[in-house]
Write a protein that binds this DNA or RNA. Structure first.
Lengths: 217, 217
DNA sequence: CCATGTGAAAGCGTTCACAGCG
DNA sequence: CGCTGTGAACGCTTTCACATGG
């Protein structure tokens, strides 16, 4: 039951783990307390073998002949992904997308907590989005220091993205979720940057439709 | 200069192509008219070799000793991805996320045009988001038929997702961009479904921070 | 001389097939 | 008997290294 923390795990595995988590949680809510690798694989559109391999990589959770215990597995995957503790997150750029993200219901499930937003627009400053108050951008740096913020979500116009990232303090910030069209290298200033481009997803589907590619998330 | 349409292209290649497109467009706006595979690779956080392989796969665009012509390359990649023609798209679920998506500035760049939104909330019906009018959900089906809509973006609560997807007419709809937490198989009713989960992206970054994984978008 | 285009080699990730165990 | 856990086979992707050509 020990977690394996030595081996290098690829991002593909991590992404699948998040899918398992979602489908296991869903099955749990439906009253299931055991799930087989086959069931998980079908719900996630995968091969059963890879589900077992992925899970085995972190320690042997399964019971032969039975499957995996929903409760244990949820806890384990949460722990692997580092979702077992509440994480404070701040948003930079309180536009439409930023607002939608703060209000997105899926974040609480995974223990993410938006505690503040930052913007330059005086109209927005002082307002509250969800539980997050909007502060002027100048206060971002001291706020990060004061609250030891480790994760920043970036939803500013693309033109401002670089300057903000440059100015983040790598002594505190370890991860940036970048929703702008700027492509940052995966490691910037010792911070993990994760680029998300909503248009990209539509572009991929455009190609899939044009030609014929069978591929999932 | 002919496009290769026979070989099977993996989704990984397509995703990189969208990155190339973005960084090439950006370089073009900065006044560059030639780019080398090395420059593209650095901007996208990749190896130069794979950039050349990807591009060569669709025909030889490069000029030896010089690099790639920005203007031509943009046009070619747009064509490969099927972004060369304007596409009408509808949104189902006019909540915060849906609103943000319609207003997201990146879609016009790639010729996506949100022409309507659908919702059950009487408060929202009749209003306009961007250029899209909000209609009652009942009108989705006839609207799709009337306007021959091929792409649907789904931003409804997760509990309603399955019913809506089941009810889409595969005679018209070829692609669904699913923002709900429900995981759909990549092909549902002969439609391409692409699952996007915003929480997933934070989960991945959470893991990256906890352990140490170097990986990009 | 410089950067492309491309075989050949290396590295990864997935699938298969089955032994082992409850 | 059913399902996990896993070595071994397979196939795909990426990287290397260099011949080719403007």
């Amino acid at each position: 039951m020990e977690l394996n923390t030595t081996t290098k795990i690829s991002e593909a595995v991590i992404r699948r783990l998040t899918d398992y988590l979602r489908c296991i949680r869903c099955a749990g809510e439906a009253g299931r307390d055991m799930l087989t690798s086959l069931e998980i694989s079908e719900r996630c559109g995968l091969n059963a073998s890879i589900v077992r391999k992925d899970l085995a990589q972190f320690g042997a959770y399964g019971v032969k002949g039975m499957g995996y215990n929903v409760r244990d597995l949820t806890r384990q995957i949460n722990k692997i992904l580092g979702l077992d503790k509440l994480k404070d997150v701040v948003l930079v750029g309180a536009g439409h997308l930023g607002t939608a993200i703060i209000r997105y219901p899926g974040f609480a499930d995974v223990n993410f907590n938006f505690i503040a937003a930052f913007d330059t627009d005086p109209e927005k400053i002082g307002k509250t989005i969800g539980y997050a108050k909007v502060y002027p951008l100048e206060e971002l740096k001291p706020f990060i220091r004061k609250h030891a913020i480790q994760i920043v979500v970036l939803t500013v116009p693309s033109s401002e993205a670089q300057a903000i990232v440059n100015d983040l303090d790598p002594g505190y910030v370890k991860g940036v979720l970048n929703f702008t069209a700027v492509i940052f290298p995966p490691k910037q200033n010792n911070m993990f940057v994760h680029n998300i481009d909503l248009a990209k997803e539509l572009e991929v589907i455009s190609y899939c439709m044009k030609n014929c590619l069978s591929q999932g998330s």
